[in-house]
Amino acid sequence: MEARLRLRDVNLNFGGITVLDDVSFDVEANAIFGLVGPNGAGKTSLFNCISGHYKPSSGSIAIDENEVSGLAPSRLAAHGLARTFQHPALQLTATVLENVLLGAHTRLPGGPVSWSLRLPFTARSEHSLREEARALLERVGLGSAADVPADELSHGLHKGIELCRALLSKPKLLLLDEPAAGLSHGEVESFIATVKALRDEGDITVVIVEHHMGLISALTDRVVVLDHGRTLLEGTAAEAQTNARVIEAYLGQEDDDGAA
């Protein structure tokens, strides 16, 4: 199958420190792919390279065979990429619905002039997007909170808001950074069901950074394990959980606050 995302020899250096070292892998279209590893392995740094928040020192990142390495996040949205963050970046004084609608900025036709004048075609598009946003919120159990300020909801519910915001952009490639962090067991189970349904219903490829191995095992088709910025293993979640080198990497990690 064709690769929705392709990385070749991606390197990232900060002040002489190697953060990523020749990372290469393919993610097939419509796959759910896991990126795992101990603290400090380089997972979030790699996510930042893919999503345009970091520029790799060298190497290639392609979406649907289009080279995107070094592009800004705003330009990557045009290639169908959307991302959530470990700590959701929400407008806390805005309503839940208003936060979700921020994900539709690439889909609203026209430009600043037509938006400010609220021309008829702009108003129709806004109405349609609002209906889509409300449907997404209903899907993740937040429909009744659509008009509530975001700061009145818990961290776990903020994750659901951010997921809806990302989905409203109609991504082909969705990056999820620690989506299970702060969620209850029931919320994790609901999240797993939602992501599986999204993949089954549409043309969406998901890449997940996650420490919750139960979620990784339940969701992913394949995983890459990183350790000290290098690829330690590529295979299934079951293979990763039984691989001696992977087990050693996890057990040998120091209990510190090193960057993931």
Rank of each mutant, 00 (worst) to 15 (best):
S69V: 14
E254F: 03
Y250T: 06
G182E: 02
R124M: 12
V36M: 02
D221P: 00
L35I: 01
G202A: 14
W115L: 10
A123C: 10
A94P: 01
D147C: 02
G34L: 04
G229V: 04
V148N: 03
G160V: 11
E126S: 15
N99Q: 08
S154K: 10
P73T: 02
E162Q: 09
L142V: 10
E189K: 10
H185R: 14
V36A: 01
H105Q: 11
T122R: 03
E189H: 14
L129W: 05
S169W: 00
E162D: 11
N48C: 02
D227G: 12
D257P: 06
R139Q: 12
I204F: 09
Q86E: 08
S116A: 13
K196G: 06
V23M: 06
N30Q: 15
L108W: 02
T236M: 04
E98L: 09
H158Y: 02
A62N: 07
D151E: 15
S51K: 00
P73G: 00
V10C: 06
V96R: 04
V27S: 03
S69F: 09
E138H: 15
A259V: 05
L102E: 02
D256C: 07
K196N: 12
V206E: 10
N13K: 15
T242P: 14
Y250Q: 01
L81S: 02
F14H: 09
F25G: 11
P88R: 04
L173T: 09
L81W: 06
P179K: 13
A123D: 07
G235Q: 06
Y54S: 04
V188K: 04
A240V: 00
L232A: 08
A180D: 07
T220P: 00
H212W: 01
L136M: 08
A29I: 12
E178T: 01
G34D: 07
L251E: 01
Q86P: 03
S169C: 05
T84F: 05
A62C: 09
I192E: 14
R118G: 09
H79T: 07
A197G: 14
A237L: 02
P73W: 15
A133E: 04
D203G: 14
Q91F: 13
L35M: 05
I63K: 01
S116Y: 06
I17A: 15
